[in-house]
C-alpha cells in the first residue's frame, strides 16, 4: 500500500508506487517530444504530463482497471498505450463522477 518505488527499467522521472501499478507519477513535468524509458525501452511522449500527473507504464485495455498505489483508481474508458497521459479523458471512477471546469466534464449545462 505505502509507496515503495520500483524503478526496474523505469525512467527516473517516473515514480511507480507499487510493483503491480500500470500508471506512474511524473516527478517533474514531461513535455511532448521527449522520450521516457519504460521497461528498459525508449517510448516517445506525445502529451504533456505535468508534475504529479500520471503516465501509463503498461498497455491498458478499454474497461480495464487502472492501478496506482497497488489499488484500482477507476477503469480505462478507452485503450491506453504505454507512455500515454492518463487523466479524465481516458480514466473514470468506478464510484462517483469527476467534474471539471474546462467544459469536458461540466456540472452546469450551458443554457
Amino acid at each position: 500500500m505505502a509507496p515503495s518505488p520500483s524503478t526496474g527499467g523505469l525512467d527516473s522521472r517516473l515514480l511507480r508506487l507499487a510493483a503491480e501499478d500500470n500508471v506512474a507519477a511524473a516527478t517533474t513535468t514531461i513535455e511532448p517530444g521527449e522520450t521516457v524509458l519504460i521497461d528498459g525501452a525508449p517510448v516517445a511522449v506525445s502529451d504533456r504530463v505535468p508534475t504529479g500527473h500520471k503516465m501509463a507504464v503498461a498497455a491498458i485495455g478499454a474497461g480495464e482497471k487502472v492501478i496506482k498505489y497497488g489499488a484500482p483508481i477507476g477503469s480505462a474508458t478507452r485503450a491506453i498505450r504505454p507512455g500515454e497521459y492518463v487523466h479524465t479523458h481516458n480514466l473514470a471512477s468506478d464510484y462517483l463522477p469527476t467534474f471539471t471546469l474546462d467544459g469536458a466534464h461540466p456540472y452546469l449545462k450551458e443554457e
Binding site: 496506482k68 477507476g74 471512477s93 464510484y95 462517483l96 471546469l101
Partner: peptide
C-alpha cells in the same frame, strides 16, 4: 450527485475519487 472532489483536484492531476482517497489514506 457529487463526490468530495473539486475541479482543482483534477487540474492537479487527480482523476478519480478513488485516486484522491488512496493518496489521502496515506
Amino acid at each position: 450527485g457529487h463526490g468530495s472532489f473539486a475541479p482543482g483536484n483534477a487540474d492537479g492531476g487527480l482523476t478519480t475519487i478513488e485516486e484522491k482517497s488512496l493518496g489521502a489514506y496515506s
